[in-house]
Design a protein around this nucleic acid. Structure first.
Lengths: 241, 241
DNA sequence: TAAATTTACTTAGAGCCATTAAGGAAACAT
DNA sequence: ATGTTTCCTTAATGGCTCTAAGTAAATTTA
């Protein structure tokens, strides 16, 4: 870390950055995605227009930074729920983190929707972008917990030999990309859980289920029960089909 | 139907509307969501700017109409797959329709993504909007097939008495809203399947799974196997937990 | 401490967009 | 043949992104 003296200038700059983020968020929450424009944000913080380019190279970068902030806040909420029961078994902390995830999403629907709905622009796909790194920390939380569970109370896994070769290869590559934290077969279970959990929240927040459900809390709890079963959190350790 | 004489004028208008849709779609596919502007579309069809307001009241309405077209095309693809095996059992037609759904999504990622990503603007939530009606026809396909399956080969359903009251009430309301096509307990099974299917496609198209999977076809087939099990398409008719 | 540089802004402006207004010319109905 | 409807035009307003050019203050350097 090179942060020796947070000089007066840097502190001011940091404060302005926070003000910018707060203004962008306020606009998002109060007036929707389209209202988060460079001009509108600048107006909110009391500077006019192009001044904002001294903080972000353009609209995309501003959006990416704000999104990264949301990811960090969401991750922090999940970490806090996880650490509140630091000595509980991994399975319990997984469920706590999942519930914290939905709680944050429900409490901050505009922000959570923004995370999805904002089409990930090409520059944000670079693995070193601010957005990408914040998203990864978020994704890592459940991955780490699942890996801990795998080490302490291994859950049943499917037979990768029965899978199509393409899938087996993808799982192997993914397992390698997470430094073998989970072997391919266990990674498959983790990804299945992730897809169901994240997919459900995605649909809830994007209002794709309004036609049937107004309150998805019981559906989410059902989903968690399925996950608990897949991860053998109920103690039964039968092998999976 | 009041369409007596499709007068010369009306035919021209219809042709222009199709040209507009094609231009909007081309812009979407080739340059992304943001490129579908009134001005750009008008330029593509050779008229300039405000002329397009004779066809659509504004940008939102144009977007809604184009989206409705996508829904119709998707629904048609699913209906075609369903009717290609008109005499097969309902379960088989369900799987065929689901595969057609993903096939269309994979073949037309920009269009399928547009269906989700475009935040449903308030006017489009009115149950009589063009978009809403097209979306409903799409959603109805699997609902109808599931209802047919329910009548001919009823699948196991959960006990609604074991659910939270809120969920039971929502399911009852939904069951009523579909004219009792499925009773609440069966509606629960249908919705669970819908959530898993649609959620998976949603995540795939929004690139939320790129970090692990590049080809989701095997994952989708896994999902279908789960659905087949939930709908007892494999013949086993055990009651559900 | 004085000069040079960096930083944080400003206004001006080009080029895009959505949308409204006003008007003209062709097609259609009577 | 006349009046109306339809389809399109240009003009104009005001918002947006972003670049350019310039100013004043803070900071660094000599």
């Amino acid at each position: 870390m090179t942060a020796r003296t947070p000089s007066r200038r840097e502190k001011l700059r940091q404060a302005t950055l926070e003000e910018i983020h707060a203004a962008a968020r306020r606009l998002l929450v109060e007036q929707g995605t389209a209202a988060v424009t460079i001009n509108a944000v600048a107006r909110q913080v009391g500077m006019s227009g192009p001044a904002l380019y001294h903080y972000y190279a353009g609209h995309d970068e501003l959006v990416g930074a704000v999104t990264a902030g949301f990811f960090r806040e969401l991750a922090a909420a999940m970490e806090q729920a996880r650490d509140a029961r630091a000595d509980a078994p991994a399975g319990e902390r997984i469920l706590a983190a999942c519930r914290a995830m939905r709680a944050w999403a429900v409490a901050h629907p505009a922000e959570f929707g923004w995370i999805f709905a904002s089409p990930i622009s090409p520059p944000d796909r670079r693995p070193d972008s601010v957005r990408h790194r914040a998203a990864q920390r978020f994704e890592q939380i459940l991955l780490d917990l699942t890996a801990e569970l795998w080490r302490t109370h291994p859950f049943p896994v499917p037979d990768t030999d029965a899978m199509p070769a393409s899938q087996r290869e993808q799982l192997t590559a993914y397992s390698a990309s997470i430094d073998g934290l989970l072997p391919p077969a266990a990674a498959h279970v983790f990804l299945s859980c992730w897809i169901r959990l994240y997919g459900l929240l995605c649909m809830e927040v994007l209002h794709q289920l309004d036609f049937a459900y107004t309150d998805l809390e019981p559906v989410f709890e059902e989903c968690l029960r399925d996950l608990a079963h897949a991860l053998a959190l109920d103690g039964t350790g039968r092998p999976a089909g």
